[in-house]
């Protein structure tokens, strides 16, 4: 069980908490700490409910901290979180974690809300020459799509598992990686998402001769 006792915590007033897709929200509060893109915070509604860890999705210099989360219907925290409005408060820990070192020309591979740390890295100007590969079931779940499209162009690849033919690659991230013709095994690969996606994608990259030392993974738990 995650507890609050291991963290320095503060109460933050919510600036906005907006639903951006069915069951997906971005919560924002004013920044009272410095952080490195890729770090996480523990977030909760009060100290009696177990916190959950979320990667920060905003840039290091942004005035507001953004947290991307999806509501789990049977979850303890997110159904409460989704009801909060501007002016309500949340409890947050200081940022922590070391998923923060990014090599030049990184390849970011994410599923769902696992895109958050990569959005933060790009928004912080720390991911020059990045390629972003994002997996989601439907078009509306490609969070930060307009930002990535504008800034990365053809190096932003959407893998949509339940879309009909369109501008996206139709299929899961793993299907894309399996057939990716431009795969450069010398680049550094960063993965974030569910355990299944991370493990499967890492195995695929290794099978395509990417050294395991070139792969760094962040896991949800």
């Amino acid at each position: 069980m995650k507890t609050w006792s291991d963290f320095e915590i503060s109460q933050r007033r919510i600036v906005s908490n907006i639903q951006i897709a069915p069951g997906a929200y971005i919560l924002k509060f004013r920044r009272n700490f410095n952080f490195l893109a890729g770090q996480v915070i523990a977030l909760g509604v009060n100290i009696n409910i177990e916190p959950r860890y979320y990667s920060i999705a905003s840039g290091e210099n942004d005035e507001l901290v953004s947290i991307l989360y999806s509501e789990k219907i049977d979850g303890k925290l997110t159904p409460m979180l989704s009801l909060l409005k501007s002016g309500d408060t949340v409890i947050v820990s200081n940022p922590f974690g070391t998923f923060t070192q990014v090599a030049p020309k990184p390849v970011f591979i994410a599923s769902g809300t696992g895109i958050a740390p990569f959005a933060s890295m790009c928004l912080s100007g720390k991911a020059k020459g990045a390629t972003v590969i994002h997996g989601a079931p439907y078009s509306e779940y490609f969070y930060f799509a307009s930002y990535f499209s504008e800034n990365l162009g053809k190096h932003y690849i959407q893998c949509c598992s339940r879309c009909m033919q369109g501008s996206q690659f139709v299929g899961r991230v793993t299907k894309f990686v399996k057939s990716w013709t431009d795969l450069d095994t010398n680049r550094q690969f960063y993965l974030c998402g569910s355990a299944e996606m991370v493990v499967e994608t890492r195995d695929l990259l290794i099978s395509r001769n990417v050294p395991f030392q070139n792969i760094t993974a962040e896991i949800y738990f």
């Binding site: 974690g97 070391t98 998923f99 395991f212 792969i215 760094t216 993974a217 962040e218 896991i219």
Partner: peptide
């Protein structure tokens, strides 16, 4: 070693 452990155990990113 931090970097080497990260390559085999993702938890190292959260709890070194």
């Amino acid at each position: 070693f931090d970097d080497e452990r990260k390559a085999i155990m993702p938890i190292q990113n959260v709890y070194p």
